[in-house]
Design a protein around this nucleic acid. Structure first.
Lengths: 351, 351
DNA sequence: TTGAAAGCGTTACCAC
DNA sequence: GTGGTAACGCTTTCAA
C-alpha cells in the first residue's frame, strides 16, 4: 500500500496534461468516435450531442493532435511542406518564402524553410529531414547538380517541385524566370542606348540560370550584329567583392566596356561599388538582373530586369499542391516573364 | 476465386508504399523492437543482428516516421519549433529567421516560420496551428498587445520565448535589443557633431520598442542640457511614404531640424528619400536605428545604430531550447547591445 | 540480448 | 445517428 506524500509532487507549475478525445468523450458522455465526428465536422451527429461535445471541447481546451490524426488518416497528409532554398536571409529567398507562405495558408499548411547555402550535402540532409517528418511535398531551389536521388521520394509519395532552377536527371515540375528573354532585353536596352562594348558578369551558380542569361546576352549581341569580345564575359563571381574586382580588371583592360550587364544581385552590387570607388558610376552604364532593395535609392538609380519572385513562388506552390492532391500527368515547366525597370543607370550613354 | 487482370493495375507509376519497421523486421528476420533498437542506436543489439537489420534498412530505404515515433515517445517531442514574426520577407525578420535556423539545426529541429503582418488575429491563428502540430516550442515576435492567452499553452507544455519585443500580461523569457541605450548613443552622436535641433521619427509599432527608443532620445537631450521642441517628435509612421511626408513637414516648419534620428528601418528609408528629393541629403544629418541592406551604398552612406539581429535570434532560440529541455526558473530578460556604425550621414554638421 | 503485448491519439470499418 | 474494435507506425514495459 502506497501513500501520497507531498514529496511526490513536482516543484514547478502543475504540468497540465493536454486533453485528448478520450477526455472529451468521458466528460460529454459520448464515444470517442462521436467526438472525432464533431471535431471533424462530419454532419452525422445530432444537434444535442454535438452541443455537449463542443462544450466539453471548450471546457477542456481540447486541441486535436494533428500528427496522430494524419498517422491514422487514409491520405496521411501532415499539412506541412518543405521549402528548401538558398538562404532565408537573402532578399530573393525571403520574397519567395513569403509568397509560398501565403498560398500555403490557403491550404492550412505550414511551411518549414531550410537554407542550403549552395551546398549539395545540405540539400540531401534537408530533403531527408523533410521526409522523416513526412511533409506533404517539397519545393526546391536546388543546390545540387543531379537530382536523380529524388526519384525515390517522388515514388514513395512526396511530390517535388522546382523553383528558379530546373531539375537535372529527373522529370519534375519547375517554375522559373524567363532568364534568356530577360537578359536579352537588358542587353538590347544597353545597345539601343548606344553601347557596343558591353560586359557580361555572372555568378557561380550551376550552369542553368547563369547559362540562360548568358544565352540571352549573346542573342542580343547577335541580333544587333555585334561580336563578343574575348574577356568580356566573366563568370564564377560569388559575392560583391569578387564582382568588384572583376569590374576593376575590366576597366583597367585595353578596351574597357562602356556598359555592364550584371547577371545576378550580388554581382550588381559589387559592380556598383567598384564604379563608385572609381567615380565612374555616372559614366558606365549598368543593367542588373533581378531587382534588389534600395535599387531606386542609389545614385544613379539602378536599372534592372526584375524577376517576379512572388509569382514564381506562388505558381510553384500551386503546382506542388496540385501534385499533392493527386494531379497526374507529365512534368510541366512554367516560365515567368521578367520586366525591365529603367531607373537611370541603364540609360547612361557612352562618352 | 479471383484472377488478376491487367485492368486492376493503376495507370501511373507504381505508388510504392513506404517501408515500415515491420517490413524491415520481416526482411531481416527479427522483431520490430530490435529494428527500433538498431534505428535508435541503442547498444543492446548483437553485431550480427544489427548488421542484418541495417542491410534491410538500406535495401528497403526505410525512413522512420518521426511523427509516429514522437506520438509514442515519453517526452513526445516533435523536433519542430514555430517562429512567428512580422514578415519573413523583411530584412530584420529574414535575418532573425536565419539565426534561428542555424541554432535549430544543431538540435535536429525544423523551424516553421509564420508572418503575422502586425495582425493580432494572425498571431492567434498561428499559435493555434503551432500547437495543433505539437511544436516543441514557440519563438514569438508578437503582434498582439496582451499575451495572457499564452498561459494555457505554456502550462500544457509548449514553452514560449519572446524576441525583439517584450511579453505583456505574461511572464516569459525575452531577448531584445538595448533600445534605449542605442537610441541615446545615436542622439549623443548627433549632438556631439554640433546639432541642437534634432527630430525624432518613430514607427507605429506597439509602444514597447519605439517607446524605449524615444526614452533614449530624451535621455540624450537631457544629458546635454537640450530641451525637446514641440512637434519635433513624430510617431506612428508606418512606411517610407508617411515618413517622407513627415520629414517634408518638419523641413517646412519655422524652425527645421538640422538632424534626424529615425527610429526604424522603413522610416530611415523614407526620410532619406525626402531629403534626396529636396537635395538636402548632404545638408541634413541622419542616424537610423537598425541597419539595412545597401546602407553603405547610398550617398552619403547612412550612419546607423545596428541591432545584432543574429545574436538576438541565437540567444532567443537557445533560451527556447533550454526551456524545452526542462529548464525551470523565473523568466529572464536579455538585452543585446547595439553598435553605432558611422558611415557619413550622421557626421554631417549643421550649416 | 531479444521479443510479445500494450498503448500513444486518432480515424476506418462495420455493426447496431 | 452512434459506438465498438482494429489499426496507423512506432516505443514502452516486462517477461523470457
Amino acid at each position: 500500500m502506497s501513500t501520497n506524500h507531498d514529496g511526490g509532487r513536482r516543484a514547478g507549475p502543475a504540468p497540465t496534461r493536454r486533453a485528448t478525445m478520450r477526455d472529451v468523450a468521458v466528460l460529454s458522455g459520448v464515444s470517442v468516435k462521436t467526438v472525432s465526428r464533431v471535431v471533424n465536422e462530419v454532419s452525422t451527429v445530432s444537434d444535442e450531442l454535438r452541443d455537449r461535445v463542443m462544450r466539453a471541447v471548450a471546457q477542456l481546451d481540447f486541441q486535436p493532435n494533428l500528427a496522430a490524426s494524419s498517422l491514422r488518416r487514409t491520405d496521411g497528409s501532415t499539412r506541412q511542406i518543405a521549402l528548401l532554398l538558398e538562404d532565408v536571409a537573402n532578399p530573393f529567398s525571403a520574397a519567395l518564402s513569403r509568397a509560398v507562405e501565403n498560398v500555403a495558408r490557403e491550404h492550412d499548411t505550414l511551411v518549414f524553410a531550410g537554407s542550403l547555402d549552395e551546398d549539395p550535402r545540405r540539400e540531401l540532409e534537408l530533403v531527408r529531414a523533410a521526409t522523416l517528418h513526412r511533409v506533404d511535398g517539397i519545393l526546391l531551389v536546388p543546390a545540387s547538380a543531379d537530382h536523380g536521388y529524388l526519384h525515390r521520394e517522388i515514388r514513395t509519395g512526396t511530390p517535388v517541385v522546382f523553383a528558379d532552377r530546373p531539375p537535372r536527371g529527373l522529370a519534375a515540375d519547375a517554375v522559373m524566370a524567363a532568364n534568356a528573354e530577360g537578359a536579352r532585353e537588358a542587353v538590347l536596352h544597353l545597345i539601343d542606348h548606344g553601347h557596343t562594348e558591353i560586359a557580361f558578369l555572372g555568378d557561380a551558380r550551376t550552369i542553368s540560370t547563369v547559362g540562360e542569361r548568358l544565352e540571352g546576352y549573346r542573342a542580343a549581341l547577335a541580333e544587333r550584329g555585334l561580336t563578343e569580345r574575348p574577356g568580356r564575359v566573366v563568370r564564377g563571381l560569388s559575392d560583391p567583392h569578387s564582382a568588384a574586382r572583376a569590374v576593376s580588371a575590366l576597366l583597367d583592360s585595353g578596351r574597357p566596356p562602356t556598359a555592364l550587364f550584371t547577371a545576378q544581385n550580388l554581382v550588381t552590387i559589387g559592380a556598383i561599388q567598384a564604379l563608385q570607388e572609381r567615380g565612374l558610376h555616372e559614366r558606365v552604364a549598368v543593367v542588373g538582373f533581378d531587382d534588389f532593395p534600395m535599387a531606386d535609392l542609389l545614385m544613379p538609380r539602378v536599372t534592372v530586369v526584375a524577376q517576379d519572385v512572388t509569382r514564381i513562388g506562388a505558381l510553384a506552390v500551386r503546382r506542388l499542391f496540385a501534385r499533392i492532391s493527386g494531379e497526374d500527368g507529365p512534368p510541366r515547366e512554367e516560365r515567368v516573364p521578367t520586366s525591365l525597370i529603367a531607373r537611370g543607370s541603364g540609360e547612361i550613354r557612352p562618352a
